Amino acid sequence: MNIHFNTPEGTRDRLFAECLERRQVQSALVDLFRRRGYAEVITPEVEFYDLFVYSGSPLPQETMLKIIDRSGKIMVMRPDTTTPIARLAATKLKTLPLPQRLYYDQTVFRSGNAHEGGSSEIAQCGVEMLGATGMKADLEMITLAVDALRACGLSGFHIEVGHVGFYQDLASRMNMPQEEQERMRLLIEGKNYAVLNDFLEPYSAQPDCAALRRLPYLFGGAEVLEEARTLAGACTSLDYLELLYRELCQAGYGDWVQFDLGLVHQIDYYTGVVFRGYANGAGAPVLSGGRYDNLVELFGRRAEATGFAVDVDAVGGCLEVEVPQLRTVIHYESGLLGRALEVMDRLPAGTCELSPCRTLSSTMNLASEKGALQVLCLDNSGERWLEV
Results as ranks from 00 to 15, higher is better:
Val25Phe: 02
Glu160Val: 06
Ser334Val: 06
Met184Phe: 04
Glu322Cys: 12
Asp105His: 08
Gly335Met: 09
Lys191Met: 05
Thr43Pro: 12
Gly134Asn: 07
Gly233Ser: 06
Leu360Met: 03
Asn294Val: 07
Val329Cys: 08
Val388Gly: 02
Met364Thr: 03
Met77Gly: 07
Val46Leu: 15
Arg301Met: 09
Gly153Phe: 01
Gly72Thr: 06
Gly162Tyr: 01
Asp147Leu: 11
Ala282Lys: 05
Ile68Cys: 08
Met135Trp: 03
Arg173His: 13
Asp105Ser: 15
Leu218His: 08
Ala210Arg: 10
Ala367Tyr: 04
Leu238Gly: 09
Asn2Met: 04
Pro79Phe: 05
Leu263Arg: 01
Gly10Phe: 06
Glu179Asn: 14
Ala205Asp: 13
Ala137Cys: 10
His115Arg: 13
Gly134Val: 06
Tyr203Ile: 06
Thr81Met: 14
Ala232Thr: 04
Cys352Thr: 12
Ile142Asp: 00
Asp147Gly: 09
Gly281Asn: 13
Leu93Trp: 09
Glu160Pro: 00
Ser120Arg: 15
Leu326Met: 06
Ser111Asp: 06
Ile188His: 10
Arg358Phe: 04
Tyr332Asn: 04
Cys209Leu: 02
Asn175Ser: 13
Ala137Leu: 10
Asp31Pro: 00
Arg78Ile: 07
Ala17Leu: 00
Gln325Glu: 14
Tyr217Ala: 13
Glu128Ala: 07
Glu353Trp: 01
Leu238Arg: 10
Val30Ile: 11
Val323Glu: 01
Gly10Ala: 09
Gly307Glu: 07
Gly317Asp: 11
Gly37Met: 03
Asp69Val: 14
Glu242Ala: 14
